[in-house]
Nucleic acid binder design. Structure first.
Lengths: 349, 349
DNA sequence: CTGTTAGCGCATTCAT
DNA sequence: ATGAATGCGCTAACAG
């Protein structure tokens, strides 16, 4: 791999001149431009960004840490993040924490050692990663948190309006005639899960329904755990809820599997709504009622905030909350027709 | 951000000693270890990987370029790649080419300037990116191509057995009783699409069926294009095929949408099979018959090959082909029962 | 306009 | 076991 020195020698100029030519800031005569270009071409020279970074302390790299690339919501976010930062000439250094706080801390440290200019973070669900985040921020690297926001850390953040979004989903179930609505929530160590649970409670209370602890099922984000919790609750046939709300896509998918495994149907036995899109299209049945987060906007907004923060550090933290939308599918609207039928029957004995 | 020099000063030692301590290769006395550790702790020092990289010419970064992070197959691949390279202490520098050859060339150049130690590439579908790839390889950066392999470039590669996989899918349709099978293929500039098309033809020929050009529908990977091509062909009611095979997931999903939009059903009007999983689970109906690529294995295999190549360059290119599996769903098996019923009727007049 | 030079932060001889 | 010195490739400040 050739260096600027070799280019200079071959073009018969000093390395300073080559650098000027490359940077474009200082004018270079036509003759020398020509010779330098030729030398670059001939040597297939490409500037060493590592050396440049060392000199300028600008790496043009943004780090991103998410719990799992494979979760569709995160891959959508990353997609839009990559697009946004790429637009500003930045590269994405990407890593997944496997939802493990210790690993997340390591990754944050590594990113810092790599001298990324900023970090986008979706926290792991365990406790105690605030310390590391705070250290990073204090060290002067801008951080923007997305989706899962850490507690007690002064940091920019972007997420959906968790409370309102969950409330919207649950209210929809209520307005479909349900009174006995269970919720499956992920770990309540996560702030967004707590917010969503509050949204569930708000919806019930607004409808004058009482919140029953036996209808709040907390679980980890592991398939097996979710399925176990969900199965146990569903098979407790006495007092099975008539509707189920899931507070995130991972839980939602596992719950749906469990419902199927229990030979129940979202069309006939239990109404179903969930945070996040489980499948992207209406081609499949049953179509699922879901609270949809604006993944693209969350990603691009976070990216823009981070870049703004890189350019002008040390203003006060900003917090952006984006609204979710409700997509009503077949999984939740069976109750209304059934109810109608019942009433119909009663009216005509 | 503190430097090794500050640590040395604070610990009252030379920077050489700190470096020895950090590297671990040269022994350092207990007393000094203690003082250095304390200084590092106090200053919250973290080695500058940029400087280290410049010195050692090892960046511990792997570049990856895919056409689109949002396509599930690619996000699965990236997930396993990240895991595999992370295991070896590497970071992933990720970028998407938007399936644009020119942009891909730019990205490859950038990755090269960033001095990544190796590159994983899923080619964009346009023509003419071989040149840049060849230059990269010649410059000494190991490259492993996945899934979409470039033509005429001597480079390591990992992909599914495209020919056999497509043949398997189409043979399944044939053995379900179909004789009039159409295929939608992506751009034939892509080698894997060409292989899959050959697989389609092989399957027909093996069954003694003739290949009709009017049943081979080539399209770009743009939604609108696919839908347009697909709609035109489906609505040509005379001689509509009884089965449809899609050569990749993007095309498959768009085709399925089109089928629905045309008020046709994969259960009653046209049998359907596709490369790639459209939804991950059997919870939804119709379940789709699909040729499933081992995305995880493709990713991890490519990552391991790349790292092996980094450690021992300049052996001959290796090409790994992984087998696909066939998942039979409801979208393709309607024909058999229907056929059986017909025969049954004939036998008992 | 062009060339010279001084570091950026670190790993690595090579002395001691 | 420790430290002084060199240079990785480049940018930027300065001198000419």
């Amino acid at each position: 791999m050739s260096t600027i020195k070799e280019v200079a020698k071959r073009a018969g100029v000093s390395i300073g001149t080559v650098s000027h030519f490359l940077g474009g800031s200082v004018p270079v005569s036509n003759e020398l431009r020509r010779r330098i270009s030729a030398a670059i071409e001939a040597l297939d020279y490409h500037p060493n960004h590592v050396a440049r970074s060392l000199k300028t302390s600008k790496t043009r790299m943004i780090g991103i840490v998410v719990p799992d690339f494979g979760i569709p919501f995160f891959s959508k976010v990353i997609r839009s993040v990559e697009e946004a930062v790429g637009h500003h000439g930045y590269f994405l250094l990407a890593a997944s924490s496997d939802d493990d706080t210790a690993r997340q801390d390591d990754l944050l440290l590594l990113l810092r050692s790599q001298r990324v200019e900023g970090i986008l973070l979706v926290s792991a669900s365990g406790e105690g990663s605030e310390l590391q985040i705070r250290k990073i921020v204090k060290s002067g690297i801008p951080v923007v948190c997305l989706d899962r926001l850490p507690d007690n850390v002064e940091v920019d953040s972007v997420s959906v309006e968790d409370h309102a979004a969950a409330e919207m989903g649950v209210s929809h179930l209520i307005s479909s005639g349900h009174r006995n609505i269970a919720v499956i929530t992920g770990p309540l160590t996560l702030r967004n899960e707590r917010e969503r649970l509050k949204g569930y409670k708000s919806a019930l209370q607004a409808a004058g329904l009482k919140v029953s602890p036996s209808l709040i099922w907390e679980t980890s984000l592991q398939q097996e755990d979710i399925i176990r919790v969900c199965k146990k609750a569903l098979l407790r046939a006495s007092n099975r809820p008539s509707a189920l709300f899931c507070s995130n896509g991972v839980v939602g998918l596992a719950a749906l599997k469990t419902i199927a495994a229990c030979k129940l149907s979202t069309q006939n036995d239990i109404a179903f709504a969930t945070f996040d899109e489980l499948v992207e299209h209406d081609i499949f049945h049953p179509s699922i009622t879901s609270v949809i987060q604006p993944a693209r906007e969350i990603g691009s907004c976070a990216a823009e905030m981070l870049i703004a923060r890189i350019q002008s550090p040390a203003t006060r933290p900003r917090h952006v909350r984006l609204p979710a939308t409700l997509k009503i599918g077949e999984s939740s609207n069976w109750y209304r027709p059934k109810l109608a039928r019942v009433l119909h029957g009663q009216n005509r004995p």
